[in-house]
Amino acid sequence: MGGVDRVICNLTNGERYMALDAVGTVPWTLKGELILNCNCTVFCPCVVSLGKHPPTEGHCQTWGGVRIDSGSYGDLDLSGFNIGLMIEIPGMMGRGNWKVALFIDERTSDAQYDALVAIFSGAAKGTTGLFQILVGEILGHERQPVSYDTDGKTRHITVGRKIKGVVHPVAGKDPERDLVITNTEYWMGPDITVATASKGRLRAYGRVWDFDGRSAEICQIDWHGPE
């Protein structure tokens, strides 16, 4: 996986190279928001079962987007970037053998790109470190134009020609309050807003998915590593 073979960090005292053995030791943080849209009927059982219950269709196909409001990898600033994700799981989430593709914001420098690949591949350890256990294959990682916009309660994400999604919370009795599953042990974060997609299209790596009307999740993230 070339993106983590050499992570380039631009430090205040000039450019230096961090060899592979340094990946997994660098402090990092990401704060922002994540959305997922999967092939499950509303609502995906993985949030509560922590992957011990099978997806509603027996397997999981998911696209996602991450908006990074603030973040860093060592002294490298990662704030303001967006990420697209494709995840394919053959059965129960907790049994692993995931296949993953990463779409990194095209505005990143080489150093920022490699740092984000290290984080989202799990190589940087910490919150996303479980990917090192669960992911069996990274299909690829590439730069793409990634937009992540919010209009009221609706989230819009576009990843080049790969992903087009529109996600909004499922309505509750009080229209002013989101329907939220709180205090979970889910890897993304403890509070998950129950949502659905009015548009959920992915065309990438030989996959053609249409998940309009299917389950979605919205989560505020506060991730860190390597601990």
Rank of each mutant, 00 (worst) to 15 (best):
L76G: 03
K99W: 00
P169N: 06
K125T: 10
V170C: 11
H53F: 14
S121A: 03
I157Y: 05
G165H: 06
V166L: 08
W98T: 09
T154Y: 07
K153M: 12
S147P: 07
V167S: 02
I87G: 02
T127R: 05
F81A: 00
S147N: 10
V167T: 13
D151Q: 15
N97T: 12
M92K: 11
S147A: 06
W63N: 11
Y73I: 06
H156R: 14
D151P: 13
S70A: 15
T158G: 02
P55W: 10
H59V: 15
E137Q: 07
E142F: 07
S49I: 08
H53E: 14
G64D: 03
G136R: 04
P169D: 09
S70Y: 09
G84P: 02
I119S: 00
N97L: 07
Y148T: 11
D149C: 03
A123R: 14
S121R: 02
L50S: 12
A115D: 09
R161W: 13
E57R: 15
Q144L: 02
I157P: 03
V167H: 04
S70Q: 14
F120N: 01
E57N: 13
V117F: 00
K99L: 00
G165T: 14
K99N: 09
D149L: 10
E106F: 02
N97H: 06
P145T: 05
R95M: 09
R143N: 05
R161K: 15
M86I: 12
F131P: 01
G165R: 04
A115G: 05
R161N: 15
L134G: 06
G129E: 03
S147R: 08
G94I: 11
G160W: 11
S49L: 08
G71P: 09
G51M: 06
S121L: 01
V66Q: 08
I89C: 03
V167K: 06
I87T: 08
L130T: 08
Q132P: 07
F81G: 02
M86A: 08
T108N: 02
D77I: 03
E88D: 07
P54D: 12
R155D: 02
S121E: 01
K162V: 06
G51K: 13
G94C: 06
N82E: 01
V170A: 09
G172A: 15
G126I: 02
V167L: 06
A123V: 04
G140F: 06
L139H: 04
A124Q: 02
H53R: 14
K153C: 10
G172W: 15
V166T: 12
R95E: 11
E142I: 04
R143Q: 10
G51S: 12
H53Y: 14
I89E: 01
K52I: 12
G58Y: 09
Q144P: 12
L130H: 08
G152M: 13
H156F: 04
G160C: 10
M86V: 11
H156L: 13
D69V: 14
W63S: 13
T62F: 14
T150C: 10
T158Q: 09
G94E: 07
G96M: 02
S121F: 00
T127N: 05
K162G: 05
Y113S: 01
V167E: 06
I104W: 00
G152V: 10
G71K: 01
R143S: 05
G165F: 12
R143T: 11
S72W: 11
G165E: 04
T128S: 03
H156A: 08
T150N: 08
